[in-house]
Simulated scan of single mutants.
Amino acid sequence: MQIIIIGASGHGKVISDIISYNIERVGGGGSYKFLDGNIKRGTEIHGYPVIGTVEECVHYPEAHFLIGIGDNLTRKKIAETYELNYITAIHPTAVIGENVHIGNGTVVMANAVINADAKIGKHCIINTSAVIEHECTIGDYTHVSPQACLCGNVHVGEECHIGAGATIINNKNIVNNIIIGAENVVIRDINESGTYAGSPIRRIG
């Protein structure tokens, strides 16, 4: 299987680690390459080459793709511009519960936990040691940062960013286009798009 990662900076490198771990674990064949217009063609990342720019993805119709870019809106723009064979990547140390749905293009990092009946949209990032509890739903293009925790039955919209170490208590609803600051605790529904921080949390922009 040929896997191409779009984006060869920090997030792309973490995805390449996940792919390497999975290839080694199953003992199967496969390789991956990168597309990144900001890095010189031929540069090797973790031993695998940058083979061109993002726009050149259309030259590889048989390949499987992941978008290794942390910015939600950039991931969305690429995914909606190029109809590619997007796959998921799940680190072997992640815990995935029963009846969990994970959309195409989503990446689940090391030691993340996604518990029973959770539904994760497409092209999301569930980052290192994040916890998504039972029956949560997460919209497309949302990033749950390292060690963030969504308690049971939390509903998060599309294109949200949940900051590192943030907690959303159970049964809360978060609309689209929300940024939750790091280490903050959400104790009420958030019904207006914007950036939220503080204790108690409040809209700051």
Rank of each mutant, 00 (worst) to 15 (best):
N38S: 15
E24S: 10
I78Q: 02
P49Q: 13
D36S: 04
H46N: 15
D71F: 02
Y60S: 00
K33L: 06
A89C: 13
K33I: 04
G30C: 07
G29A: 09
S20K: 14
L35M: 08
E62K: 04
G27R: 03
L35E: 01
A112W: 10
I67F: 01
I67E: 01
G42K: 06
G68E: 11
G29M: 03
D71L: 02
E62I: 00
D71I: 10
A79L: 06
T81P: 06
L84N: 00
N38K: 13
E98A: 15
D36G: 05
I39V: 15
F34A: 07
V54S: 11
H59P: 00
G68P: 09
I51M: 04
A89M: 03
E83M: 08
L84I: 00
N99V: 04
V50W: 01
G42V: 11
R75D: 02
G103D: 03
H91K: 07
I51G: 04
F65H: 03
H46D: 12
N85A: 01
V108Q: 07
I39Y: 05
F65N: 03
D36M: 06
I69H: 03
G68A: 10
L66A: 03
E80K: 06
A94I: 12
K40A: 15
I45D: 09
L84P: 00
E44R: 12
M109H: 08
H46E: 13
G30Q: 06
I19H: 09
I96Y: 02
Y86Q: 09
I102R: 04
S16C: 10
E56V: 00
